[in-house]
Amino acid sequence: MGEISIKINIADRVYPLRVETEEEEVIRYAAKLINEKIKELQDNYAVRDKQDLLSMCVLQYATGMIKAERNSQNRDSGLDDTIHELDNLLTEFFKK
């Protein structure tokens, strides 16, 4: 589609970006989630330094991403096992 220029505000700082048109909505939503998480952390903890809040935010999102990847891999592995068992059953069935 093409690139567009946008400005994203994260932790009271503006970042000019060039993004693909179809990515704009996702990037804006990600920035919104980051700002909401920073606000939540700021309200719940006595941390005021934006760098500390950003670091805590990144740590939470990275941890969640790693957990999601592991869950996905475990499901994929289970699916592979099931497909292999089904293949063996069908092979035995058609041998008869």
Rank of each mutant, 00 (worst) to 15 (best):
T91N: 14
V19R: 00
I27C: 01
N71Y: 15
K96T: 13
Y29A: 00
S72D: 08
V58W: 03
R70T: 15
I8K: 00
E92G: 08
L79A: 06
M56F: 04
N71H: 12
I27D: 00
K7A: 07
D76G: 11
H84T: 08
N9S: 10
L89F: 06
V47K: 02
Q51H: 11
A11I: 01
G64Y: 03
I38S: 10
Y15G: 11
F93Y: 07
E69N: 13
G78F: 14
A68C: 03
D81V: 11
L41V: 12
V26F: 05
A46T: 08
D80N: 15
K96D: 10
R13W: 03
K96R: 09
L59V: 05
N74M: 13
N71P: 08
K67P: 03
S77G: 08
A46H: 11
L17G: 00
R70Q: 06
C57V: 01
Y61D: 00
I4A: 06
G2S: 11
N35K: 01
L41W: 07
Q60W: 07
A46P: 13
L41Q: 05
E24T: 02
D12Y: 10
K7R: 10
N71D: 11
I10H: 09
K50S: 07
Y29G: 01
D80R: 15
N74W: 06
M56H: 05
A68G: 09
A62N: 06
K7C: 04
N44Y: 09
M1Q: 13
Y29E: 13
D76K: 12
V58D: 03
E69M: 09
A11P: 04
K96P: 14
N35F: 04
R28M: 00
Q42M: 06
E25A: 12
Y15C: 03
E3Q: 14
G78S: 13
E3S: 15
R48Q: 07
L33W: 00
Q60G: 05
E22Q: 06
L54K: 02
A68F: 09
V47T: 07
